[in-house]
């Protein structure tokens, strides 16, 4: 039984690291800031959540497992809000969408209110 739990938790950690690899490859390959932000935020957040779930599975509902469980919603909220802030800031900073872009509704918005 103990072996099964250890194998399961290692499997969850391995899946998380696989997702992290996808996210980081996206960070290298994709052409502009917004696409990089997109791939990196999604994949790395879910990958890290999977690693923390692995910790929870390994130790059960003890002190360390509960800490991992608390970290998961915290990570979700902070990562998504940071992604919004970065996307908005880089648009207002003046970085244009990449060459492949086909559509931009945000450009005619009167956002310069500050």
């Amino acid at each position: 039984m103990a072996d099964i739990i250890i194998i399961l938790s290692t499997l969850l950690i391995a899946i998380g690291i696989l997702f992290n690899i996808f996210g980081c490859v996206g960070l290298l390959r994709l052409p502009d800031v917004y696409n990089r932000l997109q791939s990196a935020t999604k994949c790395v957040t879910l990958g890290t959540c999977s690693i923390l779930l692995g910790v929870l599975v390994r130790y059960g509902f003890a002190s360390i497992g509960i800490k991992a469980l608390v970290a998961i919603p915290l990570l979700f909220f902070t990562a998504t809000v940071a992604a919004h802030a970065l996307a908005k800031a880089s648009y207002r900073f003046g970085i244009k969408l990449g060459e492949k872009s086909v559509h931009d509704d945000y450009k005619d918005e009167d956002y310069d209110v500050s």
């Binding site: 950690i13 998380g16 935020t41 890290t48 910790v55 970290a71 900073f93 970085i95």
Partner: peptide, 26 residues
């Protein structure tokens, strides 16, 4: 190429370190 790219890298770096912390804790 731009500052925003560097900031995205820094943000993702921070999340990766949390994963490292979890594995080291085990």
């Amino acid at each position: 190429p731009t500052i925003a790219d560097r900031m995205v890298g820094l943000d993702i770096f921070g999340i990766l370190v949390v994963g490292i912390c979890a594995i080291v804790a085990i």
